[in-house]
Design a protein around this nucleic acid. Structure first.
Length: 448
RNA sequence: GGCUAAGUGGCAGAGUGGUAAUGCAGCGGCCUGCAAAGCCGUCAACGCCGGUUCGAUUCCGACCUUAGCCUCCA
């Protein structure tokens, strides 16, 4: 089984070959914990989740690292506006993030390092970069000198001239070049900070990832895979590559993958447009597995347009899957008959094709045991969990007793051939957002 | 302005050097008190202009359009 993945570094689809067959290391940029996670955060976590599952199938040991950035100016701003400490804010949103991801059926990463737990290694990494002569100090900041790294810009395919064309950037006066970036910056007494060789301060934006990678995989080892949203290609990952190389004088990472962003009404989500969709809001309306499926409906490198029809189609499909899954729940829950699915996913995580496959095998599942097993084990592999409460949160607010009484009343009316009354009751249930379905021997209901 | 990705039926979305999956919606039918679900059948598409080729939707080039990045961003 060969896993192919599009490598942003080479701009080609490549066969994945880890540095060490016995242990694969993958790092993915996790959230900065300053607000509620949105559907874009979910996509950025779900794609590596699928890749993680695939890698685990193939390799004995996989270290999946997803960081938590818990020091950042945005967190400081949030603390101010919520009138809480930075620590309270980061703790609160870390918890919500992890809960949200777990509800969506994501596996826990092997490591979830926090920046605040890793200040010593960050200082050590900065020291190595300084020792290599790639930095300068200005206005109490330690800055990375991009002039000293000739490959700077290669990854994101940018030159200084192009960037100056952008002109919208306000360049900090202490920078020698606009593209230089901060490794360490000073904090005042009110701000979070740590003592360092360069005074009391805190790490810049990019250095934490590089440092935590190196801490976990070892300073001189090359990372196999690094992922993140494609809006991180520049400057974040460009800067990581520069730092990562300059800290150890070795290649930083072999394979880079980037997921496309989530669009809402064909526009990127942003607070200013007011179109940010939070996981917490979404799970009130639609089930977690519906969200999971919707996020897989587009190929990961394409933008995913989130719209009413995206949701409707996912709801329809997941209903079918759930029904067939539950009808066959006696079949064991292993993942050992999902070879076809694994083949599909091995080709650059083709999740839309995987959904097509699931759809077709779900139809055949009624007829024969082999397809039943393939369907169940494919669902398991993809993390579709219908056993737990796969229901929108609003469902818990509904009074089951009342509904059951109405259904009984209606069935009595049907028995007496009083169809007028039966239809009226169905109408009433409809108004309560309850949809009913008459089966041969009973009536089932669900939330619309 | 520069860079990147993409443009496939009503919508979503695979895929391919020899005219193209699948899902939703639509239409017709079976089933049903009626619905729903299910099943069967069915209509319908490769942005535009050139080039390469026996042949291109697929390769190459120009153009148009859309989105993203170039500033914090998943």
């Amino acid at each position: 089984m060969k896993i192919k993945i599009f490598n942003t570094l080479t701009k080609k689809k490549e066969i994945f070959q880890p540095a060490n067959e016995d242990c694969v290391n993958m790092y993915v940029c996790g959230p900065t914990v300053y607000s509620n996670p949105h559907i874009g955060n979910a996509r950025a976590a779900l794609i590596p989740d699928i890749l993680f599952r695939l890698l685990k199938k193939r390799y004995r040991k996989v270290n999946y690292i997803r960081n938590i950035t818990d020091v950042d100016d945005k967190i400081m701003d949030a603390a101010k506006s919520e009138k809480k400490t930075v620590f309270e804010i980061s703790k609160k949103y870390t918890k919500i993030y992890q809960q949200n991801m777990s509800v969506l059926g994501l596996l826990e990463p092997t490591f979830q390092p926090k920046v605040t737990d890793n200040i010593p290694i960050i200082i050590e990494t900065i020291n190595k970069i300084i020792d290599g002569g790639f930095t300068y100090i200005a206005d109490n900041h330690v800055l990375f000198d991009t002039e000293k790294f000739p490959d700077y810009g290669k990854f994101s395919n940018r030159t200084l001239d192009e960037m100056i064309d952008g002109v919208r950037i306000e360049i900090a006066s202490y920078k020698k070049s606009p593209r230089d970036f901060v490794l360490w910056k000073p904090s005042d007494k009110e701000q979070p900070g740590w003592d360092s060789p360069w005074g009391y301060g805190r790490p810049g934006w990019h250095i934490e990832c590089t440092s935590m990678v190196k801490k976990i995989i070892g300073m001189d080892n090359i990372l196999d895979i690094h992922g993140g949203g494609n809006d991180l290609i520049f400057p974040h990952h460009e800067n990581e590559i520069a730092q990562g190389f300059c800290a150890t004088n070795t290649k930083y990472c072999n394979y880079w993958f980037h997921n496309g962003i989530v669009l809402v009404n064909k526009k990127k989500m942003s607070k200013s447009l007011g179109n940010v969709i939070l996981i917490n809001d979404l799970i009130k309306k639609i089930s977690p597995m519906t969200i999971r499926l919707a996020l897989m409906s587009a190929h990961y490198r394409q933008p995913l347009n989130w719209s009413a029809s995206t949701i409707d189609e996912s709801i329809n499909l997941i209903k079918k899957f759930e029904k067939i899954f539950n009808d066959n729940s006696s079949i064991n829950n292993s993942e050992d008959e999902c070879d076809e699915l694994v083949d599909i996913l091995s080709d650059d995580l083709n999740t839309p094709e995987a959904m097509t496959y699931l759809s077709s095998v779900s139809k055949k599942a009624k007829a024969n045991r082999h397809d039943k097993k393939a369907f169940i084990s494919s669902c398991n592999f993809l993390g579709f969990d219908f056993k737990n409460d796969n229901k929108p949160v609003k469902e818990t607010l509904i009074d089951e007793v009342v509904i059951k009484e109405l259904i009984n009343e209606r069935n009595l009316a049907r028995k007496n051939k009083d169809f007028d009354k039966a239809d009226k009751i169905r109408q009433k249930l409809n108004q309560m957002d309850i949809e009913i379905e008459d089966l041969a021997d009973r009536t089932v209901w669900k939330i619309k």
